[in-house]
Design a protein around this nucleic acid. Structure first.
Lengths: 278, 278
DNA sequence: TTGCTCCTCACGTCACGTGAGGTGGC
DNA sequence: TTGCTCCTCACGTCACGTGAGGTGGC
C-alpha cells in the first residue's frame, strides 16, 4: 500500500487532485485509515486510474468519465459519447482557427494603421423586422440623401394613417441595398420602417417581415453620412481578411438621426449578411 | 437613452451579461437612476461595446480587455499581448487536434476490439532515477528471466554492501532495453535499482542518474510476464496510431514482483520515451 | 522529540446563468 | 390597478489550486 504522496509521485498526479477524485467518488483509495483518515493506494489501482486519465485526455469531463467507467454503458452509448465529443472538438478547432485569424489580422492592422482602429467589426445576429417598405432608385451616391428622405417621408405618412410605427430604435430607419454595386447603373434600394401589428399594403408600399440575419458583420459609424465610406472600407477589409463572404443585401440602420440635426451626433450601423468561406 | 432590455435587444447581449459587465466595471451604463437603480444606455456606447466584443472574440479575458481599453497601453504592450494570445491559440489548436486523433482512434479501437481495451496508454513524465546498474545480454526473450534475476541479484548484493536501496516503488526494479530490436543479435539490456545518496561504482556496476523522460507513453500490465507481449502490442499500436515515435530506450518497471510469488499479482509498467511526429 | 506528512475545511478561479424575492413604471 | 420590467442578492458551474490550522507517524 502506498501513501498519497508515494502514489502521487508514481503516477505524477498531484496529491490534491487525488483527494479531489476521492471526494467526487471517481477514484478512491483502496483503503482509508479509520482513525487518521490517511489514504492508502495500491498499484493494482493503476488500471482504473489510467483508464480515467486516458478518457480525460479525450476531453471528456470527469462526470462523463465516471459514467463510462461505473454505469457500464452499452457500446452504443459509448460510441455515441465519443462521436459527440468528436464533433465538439471539430467545432472547437474551427473556432480557435477563426480566432487565430482574427488575432493575426488585428496584429497586421495595428502595424498598418497604428493602435486601434475607429471601426470594430463584430459578428452578430439580427432579428427579423416586421416592416413597411418602399423601393427607390438613385443614379449615384451624391443624391441618395434626398431619395431616402422622400422614401421615408412617404412611409411615415402611410404608417401614420394605417398603423403604428415600432418604437424599437433598431427599427426606426433601415435602408437595404438590393443590388451588388454596378457602375453606370442606378442604385436600387429599399427604405423600411418597423411597424407594430399588421397593416395592409398599397401601391408602392410593401408590408412584410425583413428576414433575420444569422450572421451579420456589423460596424457602427459615429458622425455625418459623408464619412460613411470609411466604415464601409473597414468592413470590407475585415470581411475579406477574415475569410467571410457577403451573402445578401446589406443594411444601414439609423440609430441616431434627426433630419437637419447635428450630423456629428448621427449613429449608423452597417450590417452585411456574411458566411464563412469554404 | 435605452433601458437595459432595449439595449440588450439592439446589441444581442443578454441583459444579465450587461449587468455583469457593469459590476466588473468593464462597461457601465451612460446613466443610472439614483432612486430605482435602472440602467440607461446610449447608442454612443456602441463604440466601446463593439471594441470589447471584438477583443473578446480574439479569446482575451475580460480582465485583459479592460486593460487594453482603459490603461492606455503602449502599442508595444498591445502587440505583446496579441502575440502571446497567438501563441496560446496555436498551442490550443495543436492540443485539440491531438485529442481529436485520440478520439478517432478510440472509436476505431472499440469497433475492432469491442468496448474498452485492457491496456490504456497514457502520456506521462518520468522523474530521473539515481541508480546502480549493470548490463547484461540475452540471446532471446525465452532466457530473459534468468538473465535479469542474476543481474538484479548482483546489484542487490552490491548495494547491500556499499549503500542503501531506494524504497520508492517505482525504483525497485527497472530494466532498460538499450538496442532497438535486431533479429539474430543478442538483446542488450541494463538492470537498474534506485539508490539513496551516493555510492561508488566498481567493475560491472555503474552508478549514475537515469535521465528523466519528458514524455513517456506508459502502459501497465497486470499478471505474468509471459503475456507482456500483449501490453507491448497495445502500446506500439497506440504510438503508431496517434502520431508519436519512439525516441529512446524503453523501460520495464516492476511495481509488484516477488520472485517465485504468485505471477497473477505481478504489476509491470512499460515506458517508451516518445515525441510527436513532425 | 522534531519535522514531515497527512488531514479537513474554506475560499478563489472565469464569465456568466439561474432562480428568489422584492420594487418601480406605465 | 395589473402585469411587466428592473433591481439586488446568493448560489452554481468545472477541475482543481491555494492557503489556514490542526494532527498522526516515524
Amino acid at each position: 500500500m502506498l501513501r498519497i504522496s508515494e502514489f502521487s509521485r508514481l503516477t505524477r498526479i498531484p496529491a490534491k487532485t487525488l483527494r479531489y477524485y476521492d471526494d467526487i467518488g471517481l477514484f478512491c483509495p483502496a483503503q482509508v485509515d479509520k482513525f487518521t483518515g490517511y489514504r492508502y493506494y495500491s498499484v493494482n489501482q493503476l488500471a482504473r486510474l489510467n483508464r480515467i486519465l486516458a478518457l480525460k485526455e479525450l476531453g471528456l469531463s470527469l462526470e462523463q468519465v465516471k459514467d463510462m467507467l461505473d454505469n457500464n454503458l452499452t457500446p452504443e452509448q459509448i460510441r455515441g459519447m465519443l462521436m459527440l465529443k468528436q464533433a465538439e472538438l471539430q467545432q472547437q478547432i474551427q473556432q480557435e482557427q477563426m480566432r487565430l485569424l482574427y488575432v493575426e489580422n488585428k496584429l497586421k492592422q495595428i502595424e498598418e494603421e497604428g493602435l486601434m482602429s475607429d471601426y470594430e467589426v463584430v459578428i452578430k445576429s439580427v432579428a427579423p423586422v416586421h416592416a413597411a417598405t418602399i423601393r427607390a432608385t438613385t443614379p449615384d451616391m451624391a443624391h441618395i440623401g434626398q431619395t431616402l428622405d422622400r422614401a421615408f417621408d412617404t412611409l411615415m405618412t402611410y404608417i401614420g394613417e394605417h398603423g403604428k410605427q415600432s418604437d424599437k430604435p433598431e427599427e426606426c430607419g433601415i435602408t437595404l441595398y438590393l443590388d451588388p454595386e454596378m457602375p453606370d447603373k442606378d442604385i436600387l434600394l429599399e427604405a423600411a420602417l418597423g411597424i407594430e401589428g399588421d397593416m395592409k399594403a398599397t401601391g408602392d408600399i410593401n408590408v412584410y417581415t425583413l428576414p433575420a440575419i444569422e450572421m451579420a458583420a456589423s460596424v457602427v459609424h459615429h458622425g455625418p453620412f459623408n464619412t460613411l465610406d470609411k466604415a464601409y472600407h473597414a468592413l470590407f477589409k475585415w470581411i475579406e481578411a477574415n475569410d467571410y463572404e457577403v451573402c445578401g443585401p446589406n443594411r444601414e440602420i439609423n440609430l441616431a438621426y434627426e433630419r437637419g440635426g447635428d450630423q456629428n451626433k448621427y449613429v449608423t450601423e452597417l450590417q452585411f449578411p456574411v458566411k464563412k468561406k469554404l
